[in-house]
């Protein structure tokens, strides 16, 4: 079923498909900044990457990183208002996946990606356990070459993920 298009959304939903093909090694998605649209974008991304013969573990890791990055944009850059647009671009460089995420939301605090820390097991009583703040830790742990730029009114986050030996392009 075709979702209703709202005036501010432009052509985001029309572009909501794509795949990384040997002839066109690029996946480009544009979608609205809400959590269900992120779910769909993750599904499209994983479908677009399906032929890359990643292991189940690698697929899970890519999907997790994308979920963290895209939901951060929804919640923080756009403040959960659901009225922004997110652009995701995935390209392939041999056994490395290169990701670019763009949005027109608020800049990162202090112009930098937040530090991510794992759970401090020495000081944590059950009631003090954190219920959030793991996103950036996971992103930093699972990606390489994470960079953030503010270009005018745009946020531009880029990072890479190296696939294992099992990678075989078809």
């Amino acid at each position: 079923m075709r979702p209703e298009r709202l005036s501010f959304m432009g052509h985001a939903r029309d572009l909501h498909k794509g795949s990384i093909l040997p002839t066109c090694p690029r996946l480009h998605l544009v979608f609205p900044s809400d959590e269900l649209a992120v779910r769909k974008a993750l599904k499209s991304s994983m479908a677009g990457l399906a032929h890359m013969d990643m292991s189940a573990d690698e697929k899970g890791t890519v999907e997790l990183v994308l979920a963290e990055v895209l939901n951060n944009v929804v919640e923080h850059a756009y403040g959960g208002a659901g009225q922004g647009v997110i652009e995701l671009d995935v390209s392939r460089d041999d056994d490395i996946l290169v990701f670019d995420v763009l949005d027109d939301g608020l800049p990162m605090p202090d112009g930098e990606t937040p530090a991510g820390r794992p759970l401090d097991l020495d000081t944590c009583a059950e009631q003090d356990l954190p219920e959030g703040g793991f996103g950036w830790f996971l992103i930093r742990e699972l990606t390489q070459d994470l960079t953030y730029r503010r270009d005018g009114n745009r946020n531009h986050l880029s990072f890479k993920m190296r696939l294992g030996d099992k990678y075989r392009p078809n």
Binding site: G60, L64, A67, E68, N71, L129, G133, F134, G135
Partner: peptide, 11 residues
């Protein structure tokens, strides 16, 4: 599939 928000909800 679980992400950090889901993990936070379990915690």
């Amino acid at each position: 599939f679980i992400d950090s928000s889901g993990l936070g909800a379990v915690v």
